[in-house]
Amino acid sequence: MATGGRRGAAAAPLLVAVAALLLGAAGHLYPGEVCPGMDIRNNLTRLHELENCSVIEGHLQILLMFKTRPEDFRDLSFPKLIMITDYLLLFRVYGLESLKDLFPNLTVIRGSRLFFNYALVIFEMVHLKELGLYNLMNITRGSVRIEKNNELCYLATIDWSRILDSVEDNYIVLNKDDNEECGDICPGTAKGKTNCPATVINGQFVERCWTHSHCQKVCPTICKSHGCTAEGLCCHSECLGNCSQPDDPTKCVACRNFYLDGRCVETCPPPYYHFQDWRCVNFSFCQDLHHKCKNSRRQGCHQYVIHNNKCIPECPSGYTMNSSNLLCTPCLGPCPKVCHLLEGEKTIDSVTSAQELRGCTVINGSLIINIRGGNNLAAELEANLGLIEEISGYLKIRRSYALVSLSFFRKLRLIRGETLEIGNYSFYALDNQNLRQLWDWSKHNLTITQGKLFFHYNPKLCLSEIHKMEEVSGTKGRQERNDIALKTNGDQASCENELLKFSYIRTSFDKI
């Protein structure tokens, strides 16, 4: 039985969820670079991206490699990797027998973001014989899940209580170790020597080791999670996991709180800001991140802002960003909400898709409305799209047979046209069989910064309504002859009103 693990408890099935942008060198404390989270699957090609990484700022997932063999891993080693800020997950990587050479110096898994409450997941690794993470000293947050690894031993010899604050939620089941077939031998045991430290858990006094050649490092209890030197002297209180010299914040392997210019500090002093819960960055760093993602459509890219001495992905609820200094300031009234469309555009074809934009005031991208039916549609669209004030790209209304009016965009005031449909149009209306009105132009103002209007096959939309939009939106004169079809717009509506004058002759039985 794995020490510190839980057996036999019912657990939810383990679901495996399925960018080499360097964020800056980590400095003297770390020998390499800070790398983003990685999802490495199918083959070993991307694994080489770990070569210079000291910190993975995010998670590391290595999974679904069915053609790899043990010899493929023999020359692979990433000794610079010290810390993973989120979680480490391995799933069905064939041929991998140990992690001792792959990650010989991995010391800390912070667990800032977890995989279903777990910071370390080893699942269905069919050839893994031992973990071998002999320098792993601290899992700051989260638990361990090690399950269905039929060859995995050296679990009962690990004292997880020396690595985690609590072992109650560890789930370590259905491994070879369960069948008591392992016969784990710690260093020196074969020669009758006791080389590794022994600890007591559940009444068992057991030597602690990761492999037959690597003991588990056990520091004096007084050192807590700070770690200790090879001689057993406690590291500085700002260290986490390990250090090369005692009581020196510049000799830590990793930091308990924050890293700044080669030393570990309790908090980031001005003019620095907390970033990702582990390091200090200056304003320029946060500003660069903001600008890199301002026009990016890459998933996970955030326009970072500053709030409460932190550089964070977005302002919290009730705050909006001051564009001059990136500071989050309290909103006066309802907060603006910028919604970034991942692929640059979004099609609204149902109430469900409209709900995804609920509360958005600025759309960074283009909207395509293609709704053919739905219950209580006008009210639903207004509830979900009615706060949109600005669209950076274009607005396209296409084959939306259920629409009679666009009044559900009740606050839309600006279409920038930074991206144009077919390279020309910022407003595009095609084949809307029941569209009769755009907006009530006596109450609604709309500016279209650039781009043209396109109207074709809107049989109940009168040309007068379209011409009014040209005047109000500032697009009059931009359109070419064929942009607004004269014969297919309003051709099934009563669009022309003329005053009919009647004269009559009164007659009676005795007068003409």
Rank of each mutant, 00 (worst) to 15 (best):
G227L: 01
E124F: 00
T85W: 00
T85D: 00
N149R: 00
L90M: 13
G227K: 05
N105V: 06
F66Q: 01
M137L: 10
L152M: 06
G111L: 02
F115P: 00
P104S: 01
A198H: 09
Q299I: 09
C252S: 02
V167C: 12
C280D: 00
S237Y: 08
S237I: 10
C196K: 06
N43Q: 12
I40T: 01
S112F: 08
D277W: 07
I172F: 07
H59E: 00
R110W: 04
L60M: 05
E33I: 12
L260I: 11
C209E: 02
I222M: 11
I139A: 01
D177C: 09
D86I: 05
T229Q: 09
I185C: 13
K310A: 09
L44M: 10
R162L: 10
I82Q: 06
N242H: 11
E57W: 02
P336N: 13
H28M: 09
G32Q: 09
V108D: 15
P330R: 10
L76T: 01
A190C: 08
T45R: 10
D277A: 10
C186A: 02
N202P: 11
T211G: 00
C153F: 00
N149P: 01
D247K: 07
H302N: 11
C286T: 15
I84L: 05
Y319W: 03
S244H: 08
C286R: 03
L102M: 13
F78C: 03
L88V: 07
G262R: 08
E168M: 13
L120N: 02
L44W: 11
H236P: 04
D165Y: 09
E180P: 10
S143V: 07
P31Q: 02
F283Y: 13
I62Y: 00
R69C: 09
P269I: 07
T68M: 06
R113A: 03
T85A: 10
I122P: 06
A119F: 01
D75W: 08
L332Q: 12
S296T: 14
I185H: 06
K100G: 07
G183T: 11
G262T: 12
R297P: 08
N202W: 05
R69H: 02
N135P: 02
H214S: 04
K310C: 10
K129R: 10
P246G: 12
C252K: 05
I312S: 10
W160Y: 09
E181S: 06
C223H: 00
P70W: 11
D248V: 05
Q299D: 02
D288P: 02
S244N: 05
G203N: 09
E168S: 15
T320N: 10
D39Q: 00
L289V: 13
T45E: 15
P70V: 11
K129G: 04
G203D: 14
Q276I: 05
E238G: 05
M65F: 02
P336R: 07
R162G: 07
I84C: 00
F103L: 07
I139Y: 02
G188V: 05
R263L: 11
S323P: 09
L106V: 02
K193V: 06
I56L: 04
N43T: 10
Q245H: 10
L63C: 01
P197V: 09
I109T: 01
P104D: 04
V55Q: 04
C286A: 14
D159C: 05
P249G: 09
H290W: 14
N309I: 03
S98K: 04
G318V: 01
P330V: 10
T329K: 09
L164N: 02
S98M: 02
A198P: 05
D277C: 03
H28E: 06
D159Q: 10
H214R: 02
K176R: 06
S237C: 12
C35W: 02
E130Y: 13
V206L: 15
L99H: 01
A198F: 08
G203E: 11
L128M: 11
A119T: 02
F66G: 00
S143Q: 13
Y171R: 03
V34H: 02
F258D: 01
C328H: 00
L63V: 05
K100Y: 04
I84A: 00
I122A: 06
N52I: 05
I158V: 07
N322G: 07
C53H: 01
E314Q: 04
N257V: 00
S161Q: 13
F91Y: 00
E238T: 04
C264S: 04
C255Q: 03
D248Q: 11
G111S: 00
H59F: 03
C286N: 07
S54E: 08
E151L: 09
I109L: 14
D165H: 08
H226Y: 11
L114W: 01
G95K: 05
L81M: 13
P104L: 01
E151K: 09
C252T: 03
P187S: 05
V173G: 07
D86R: 06
E124Q: 02
N117Q: 04
G333P: 13
G333K: 04
